[in-house]
Simulated assay, not measured.
Amino acid sequence: MNGDQIFKWDKFSSHVSSLSGCFVLDTGCVTGYYIWRMLGCDTYLVVRMDLMPIFCIHLKQYKNY
C-alpha cells in the first residue's frame, strides 16, 4: 500500500454512495489493493480480472497470509 493508492481510493470512494451488497468487477486489478478495500465496504462479491498471470499468482499467495 502506498500513498498514491490511498489517494486514488479516497477520490473514488467520495463519488460512490455505497458498495454494500453490490457485485463489483475489478479489471486490471494488478496488486489487488482496491479489491481488499471494496471487500471492506460490505460488497456482495468482488471479481478480479487481470491479463498478467503474475498478478493473479501474487493475489493467490497474498490471500494465504
Rank of each mutant, 00 (worst) to 15 (best):
Q61R: 05
V47D: 04
C56W: 01
N64E: 15
H15Y: 13
C41P: 02
F23M: 12
N64K: 11
L59F: 01
R48V: 10
C41L: 03
Q61F: 04
W36Q: 12
V24S: 02
N2E: 15
M1S: 11
D26L: 12
C29V: 12
W9P: 08
N2H: 06
I57S: 12
V30T: 02
R37I: 04
L45A: 02
L39V: 15
C22T: 08
S14H: 10
D26M: 00
L19M: 03
D50H: 04
N2G: 13
C41D: 02
N2D: 15
V47L: 05
M1V: 09
N2Y: 06
Y44Q: 10
K11Y: 12
W9L: 06
K11W: 07
H15G: 05
K8E: 02
N64T: 15
Q5A: 06
V24R: 03
H58A: 09
D10T: 14
I54E: 13
V30Y: 15
Q61C: 10
G28F: 03
S13R: 08
I35V: 11
G32K: 05
K11F: 14
C22E: 07
S17K: 15
L59V: 06
N64R: 11
L25M: 14
D42G: 02
L45V: 04
V16H: 03
D42R: 07
C29P: 02
G21V: 08
K60M: 08
G40Y: 01
F55Y: 11
L45H: 08
D4E: 07
V46G: 00
F23H: 14
M38R: 06
I54L: 10
I6E: 13
F55D: 07
Q61D: 13
K63T: 06
S13N: 13
Y33L: 09
C29M: 15
I54N: 06
L39W: 04
K63R: 13
C22P: 00
S18F: 04
M38F: 14
I35K: 00
S14W: 04
K11E: 04
K11D: 05
N64C: 12
Y65W: 03
C29D: 05
I35P: 00
K63S: 15
W9M: 06
M38T: 05
G40W: 02
N64Q: 14
L19P: 01
D50Y: 05
M49E: 11
M52Y: 04
G32A: 08
S13H: 13
